[in-house]
């Protein structure tokens, strides 16, 4: 009994004023992922890595756009998105007070336009991602493969395949083959 009393007196107040006073979280605490619309190139790496599918991308080829959305109600704050993002466009903050009055407010959506194929005209990948690839490829000025890839960067995979097969056919014929 005496021990208990002593312990009570020694402890004093154990509670903190939160939520009436701010509470400190460790600097590496995992909280709300913050998405940077401008830096993001809609590559979709985060959407693939996200375990609970909080991040989703939906392509609308008619509108030639793709949406990138995050639902904070599904997010488990694991930080996989941050880990895989090539452009550091998504970072976890320490923010944790995410309650909202309307469930819809938990979702954030942004749209990115798609690149149309310069040959067939059909949209095939986010324009920013194509541009990103182009900028990387053009850094390798001395590499003929990179140069060729840069030239074809705006051609969709199907048209590329078509080109390849046509070239193969030409090669075959020039070698005297019969088709």
């Amino acid at each position: 009994m005496l021990k208990t009393l002593k312990e009570i007196i020694r402890t004093g107040d154990a509670t903190v004023k939160y939520p009436f006073a701010p509470i400190e979280r460790p600097k590496d605490a995992r909280g709300k992922p913050e998405h940077d619309l401008a830096n993001c190139m809609a590559c979709g790496a985060c959407a693939v890595a996200c375990p609970p599918n909080a991040i989703q991308m939906v392509i609308d080829s008619r509108a030639q756009s793709t949406s990138w959305s995050i639902n904070y109600g599904r997010c488990v704050y694991c930080g996989r998105c941050e880990e895989v993002c090539p452009t550091k466009a998504i970072r976890l903050s320490t923010e944790f007070e995410l309650a909202v009055m309307d469930k819809n407010d938990l979702e954030e959506i942004c749209m990115y336009s798609l690149q149309s194929c310069t040959e067939c005209g059909s949209p095939f990948a986010p324009a920013k991602e194509v541009d990103y690839a182009y900028r990387i490829l053009t850094q390798f000025v001395d590499d003929p493969d990179a140069r060729q890839a840069a030239e074809l960067v705006k051609v969709c995979p199907r048209c590329k395949q078509k080109r390849d097969s046509q070239r193969a056919k030409q090669n075959f014929e020039s070698l005297g083959g019969v088709s």
């Binding site: 979280r25 460790p26 590496d28 605490a29 995992r30 488990v76 704050y77 694991c78 930080g79």
Partner: peptide
């Protein structure tokens, strides 16, 4: 719990 949060970034579900 604070110790866990400091080491892993969350009180529970350390991910």
């Amino acid at each position: 719990m604070d110790l866990a949060e400091m080491l892993t970034g969350a009180r529970k579900t350390y991910g």
